[in-house]
Amino acid sequence: MRRRLPWMLACLLAGGALPVIPATSGFEQPEHSSIPFQTVLELEQAARLLAVLLDSGRAVINDNQIVLEESQGKGLTPEAFERQLMDMFRGRAGIDLHELDGAALAPRTKRLLRALVETSRQVIADLRQELHPQATQFRGFIPAAFGARVSARFTDHTGVRLKQTSLAPRNPANRPDAYERGALEAFADSAYPRETVISEMAAKSASFRLMFPLYATRHCLDCHGEPKGVVDRMGYPREGLVLGQNAGAISVLLPVKP
């Protein structure tokens, strides 16, 4: 038997605030879990904030597509990216990453957020370095490519797994596992509450799992929209998505012990 905990209660007890996300999400925890309740709240807050921060980085890349394309990928500096990332995250999560020392967050959460910012910035710096100066064709650095690079590095450096996934991923490495598939099927239902996460304490693996839904933007539709089946500029058949439709999720697996 499982019990459900509204995210609003989690936010209040943990002292955090996530105004952009509705307070209707559920948390599932095994009834006989020996993990302290406060630890569970801190894990959910950390997982949710990491997902919001990664998606904020994806949004910055999304907003700069024209700049990236016109400059052959070099028009977005690491400094400009980081500034936009912090502004985006502050607007969505209500947390100023410049003032993390004074934020009402667990020390581990602060450490992970700083690590994700640095990893994201380094991915942009490396992109600029690896582009050949004589290149005449730039296929684009899309949000999914950014997210994949950042997630892989962040997982290697911290042991916290971030992953972009969907029911029909283009990258085989992003195939959903059983837990992710169940959440994705729920997100795909048009009746599912928008921007509501699904989370669970996995006692057997001593980890916390969270699925953060993603939605198709106008830039997403350039490659993933109509007409379905027609090859896009990246060489893949379009999925036929429409604006605002669920387009997958960010999966977070956070070990209980650092």
Rank of each mutant, 00 (worst) to 15 (best):
A80H: 08
S25Y: 02
L214P: 02
P22R: 12
A188R: 13
C223P: 09
R233C: 02
R90D: 06
L97R: 10
E70K: 14
C11N: 13
P213V: 08
R111V: 01
E69C: 00
Y236A: 10
A145Y: 07
A93G: 05
L241D: 08
D177H: 03
T77M: 01
N62H: 11
L221V: 06
L13R: 09
I95Y: 05
I124T: 04
L53P: 13
Y179H: 02
L68Y: 12
A178L: 13
N62V: 01
P227H: 06
A47Q: 00
L112S: 03
A148R: 13
R209V: 06
L50V: 11
L113E: 11
R92T: 06
D101G: 00
H219P: 03
A183V: 09
L43P: 00
Y179L: 07
Y236Q: 11
N171S: 06
D87S: 05
R2V: 13
I198P: 01
R218C: 00
S25G: 15
Q137L: 14
D156N: 11
M234R: 09
S205I: 00
Q122Y: 08
G57E: 09
L241Y: 14
F141I: 00
I95K: 06
P169I: 10
M1W: 06
L105K: 09
L167R: 15
Y215C: 07
L43A: 13
A59R: 15
S33V: 00
N171L: 12
L162P: 01
K228R: 14
R153F: 00
A173T: 11
R83N: 04
L53Y: 12
I142L: 12
P78Y: 09
E180V: 09
R181Y: 04
A23T: 11
K163P: 00
R153K: 10
E185W: 02
A152D: 04
V67W: 01
L97C: 03
L254F: 07
